[in-house]
Amino acid sequence: MRLLLGGYTTDMGGDAAGIGLVHAGDPDGPTADGQLSLRTEVVATSSPSWLARHPRLDVVYAALEFRGEVQAYRRTGPDAWMPLGRPVAAGEAVCHVAVAPDGASLVASCWSDGRVVRMSIDDAGVPSAPVIAPAAVDPYGPVASAEPAADDLDLAAAARALREAAGPEFAHLVPGSDAPAAPHPGPDQESEAARPSRSHQARHLPGGLIVTTDMGLDLVRFWRDSPRGLRLVGQVTLPLGSGPRHTLWHPSGHLYVLTELSREVVVLGADRAGEWRMLSATGLIGSLDDDTAAEIAMTPDGETVYAGIRGSNTLGVLRVRGTGDRLEQLALVDAGVDWPRHHVVVRDTLLVAGQLSGEVVSMTRDPRTGVPGRVRHRVAAPSPTCILPVA
C-alpha cells in the first residue's frame, strides 16, 4: 500500500521537503503490514501538515499550515502528483481539511485565528470561493450566552469582515479588534482575559451534518451546508479547559471527541429532536499531567478505539461498550515513536507517525483484544504529521 505523508518543513521547524511517500509492503496491495520504505518526496511544498482525499477523483488536498492556504494535487502516475489549480487562502495556521462525501466542497480549520472556512470544489477537483463561517463565542466568556442566536453570529461575522475591510490603519476603531490573543487557560485556572478560538478539525457526518471542534473555546459545533456557506444549527460545550481536538464517527450514531488538554474521549449523542449532548467521558488512565492527546482512530469493526498521547508517547486502547454510548480503556501501550502526532488503522495494522523522532512505524493488532503489539516495521521519515493511505 502507498501512504502519503504530511509534514512540517523548515518554515515550521521541521525537516520535511513537502508531501512524502511510504510504501508499506506491496505498494499496489490492499494491506499495510509489510516492510516500510521511504520514497522521494511526491512534491515539494510548504508544511503540508494535513492531507485529505477527494472521494472520487485522484486528487488530494493539503493544508499548507505556514502559508495559511489549501492546495489541491492531482495524481499523474502511481507515485507522482502535481499541483492542481492555485492555492486558496484559508486562514492563519490552517491545520485540517475535510472533503464532503459528494466531493463538491471542503471545510478547512484554522488554529491561529479560529476560522472555519468552506470552499467549493469544481468537477476537476479544484477548490475556490472560500466563505468564512460565523465565529465561535466563548461559552465561558463574560458576555457569552449558552446558545448563541443566529443574529449574534451574523453580527460577529459582520464585525470581523468590517475589521478586515478597514485594514490595519482603521481596524482599531472596531470594538475588540485590538484584543490580544491570550494563552489557553487550563481547567483549574481562572482568567478574565479573552480566550482565543482554535479551530482544529471538521468532519462530515451522515445526513449532511458537519461537525467542527474548537480547542480554544471547548466547543463542538454542528453545521448545515448551504450555497452561502455554513449555517450553525447547534453546539455542545465541553468542560472548561478540555480542549476538543479531533472526532470520530461511530456506526452506532455516536460521536467520539478526543480532548487534547484533559486527555479524554467524550461521547456525544443526539436525541430525536436532533439536539446533541454529552453522554459520557472516559479519561486515558496512565497519561501524565503534561501530556496532550493527538489523534483518535477506530478498527474497521467499530469495536476498538485508539487515542494517541504525546509526551509519554503512548496509545490508549479503548473498547466500545453498551450501545456505543460509552468506552472502557483496555490498555495503554508504547506508541513506538516520539510525539505520536497521527495514526491510522489499515485492516489489522496500526501505523503511527512520530513527529519528533522523524519516523513512521507499523504494529499488528491482536485479533481478539485489538491491543497492538510491538513495532514490526520502522522507517525514517522527516517530521511526519499525517498519514493518508492511497491505493
Rank of each mutant, 00 (worst) to 15 (best):
D113R: 00
P87M: 00
D225G: 09
R228T: 11
Q329S: 14
L21I: 15
D11M: 04
G103R: 12
A297L: 03
D334N: 12
A63D: 01
R245V: 15
V320W: 00
R245M: 06
E264F: 05
R163E: 07
A335Y: 08
T237K: 02
Y140N: 05
P187E: 02
R67C: 09
W249N: 05
Q329V: 10
G308I: 00
T369R: 00
P87Y: 07
S287G: 13
S46V: 14
P148L: 07
D123L: 11
L209A: 10
E328I: 11
R53M: 10
G34P: 10
G18V: 15
G13E: 11
G14P: 05
T349H: 07
D102W: 00
G243L: 11
D122R: 00
V305A: 05
L240Y: 10
L255Q: 02
D218F: 09
D15S: 07
T369V: 00
D188P: 14
D28R: 10
G125D: 01
M278E: 10
G176L: 04
A52F: 04
R163I: 07
L315T: 10
G207N: 01
A98W: 04
A157W: 11
P78C: 12
R272W: 03
A381S: 06
P139W: 01
S49Y: 03
E92V: 15
A159G: 14
W81D: 11
L318T: 11
R378P: 04
G103Q: 06
E192V: 13
H342P: 10
V236I: 05
V379L: 02
R263T: 11
R224F: 11
E275H: 05
M278Q: 11
G243R: 06
V317Y: 03
R86A: 13
R376Q: 05
L155R: 13
A157G: 14
S47M: 08
G91E: 06
G311D: 02
A270F: 04
D152F: 07
V265A: 04
P187I: 03
T45Y: 03
A307E: 09
R39H: 15
T10L: 12
L261F: 09
E359G: 01
W223K: 04
T282N: 07
Q189R: 13
A156Y: 14
V266T: 00
R160Q: 15
H204S: 07
P244K: 09
D58F: 01
M363T: 14
L332V: 14
V266E: 00
A335D: 02
R56L: 13
R231F: 08
T247V: 11
G302M: 08
R321A: 14
S128L: 13
V107L: 12
G274K: 02
R310E: 12
I210M: 02
I121L: 07
G25V: 10
L255A: 04
G7A: 00
E164C: 05
H184A: 08
Y256G: 08
T247R: 02
G68R: 09
A90R: 01
P227K: 02
R39C: 14
Y140K: 08
Y73K: 10
L4E: 10
P101S: 03
E169D: 09
Q355F: 01
R326F: 04
S287Q: 01
A89K: 08
L162I: 14
H54S: 13
L284C: 09
H54I: 02
Q35I: 15
P127A: 08
